[in-house]
């Protein structure tokens, strides 16, 4: 399926929850969606035999000046087509529904995004830090992050 078709079918089913399709080559075309309906949209993308997206290639976080963004790269191993979903949330309340129950590979990806960006995935069964120590303060990949002076009595700056 082409991205236009996928967008059309989704728009028909979910209406306002699908914001727009951005298709600017050479970058991959992507669909902006609202956070509230994300879980249902993902379920549809996985279970509808026309889409058959059975593989979550990547889940990444992005830090913009005003907002935080989560990007989902999906691929269908049978149909050989792919789609990119983007969800934008405000920085003061970065809550995105977890899609861990749709694709199990999202489990650790979401923990990583939480660890490094502080994006809270609601409904995740075990949303704890995955890379940094559990008692770490702050989320280091945010642009306004300041590295700590000491960690457990060890000086951190060079």
């Amino acid at each position: 399926m082409e991205i236009q078709e996928i967008f059309g079918v989704l728009k028909e089913k979910f209406g306002d929850a699908i914001i727009d399709l951005v298709n600017e080559p050479p970058s991959d075309p992507f669909i902006n969606v609202v956070p509230d309906k994300l879980f249902d949209i993902c379920l549809e993308l996985r279970d509808n035999p026309e889409f058959d997206f059975d593989y979550l290639m990547c889940l990444s976080g992005v830090d913009y000046p005003e907002t935080l963004q989560v990007v989902y790269h999906l691929y269908s191993l049978n149909k050989k087509h792919k789609v990119v979903l983007k969800v934008t949330v405000p920085k003061d309340n970065p809550k995105v529904p977890s899609i861990e129950r749709v694709w199990r590979s999202a489990d650790w990806h979401e923990r990583e995004a939480y660890d490094l960006f502080g994006i809270v995935f609601e409904g995740h069964h075990n949303l704890i830090r995955i890379l940094l120590p559990y008692d770490w303060e702050g989320h280091p990949l945010r642009k306004d992050y300041k590295e700590p002076e000491t960690y457990h009595g060890i000086r951190v700056p060079y």
């Binding site: 940094l132 280091p140 590295e147 700590p148 060890i154 000086r155 951190v156 700056p157 060079y158």
Partner: peptide
């Protein structure tokens, strides 16, 4: 490297 120890001789 916010998470890297700057030299193991610190510990």
């Amino acid at each position: 490297g916010y998470h890297v120890l700057k030299g193991v001789d610190r510990i």
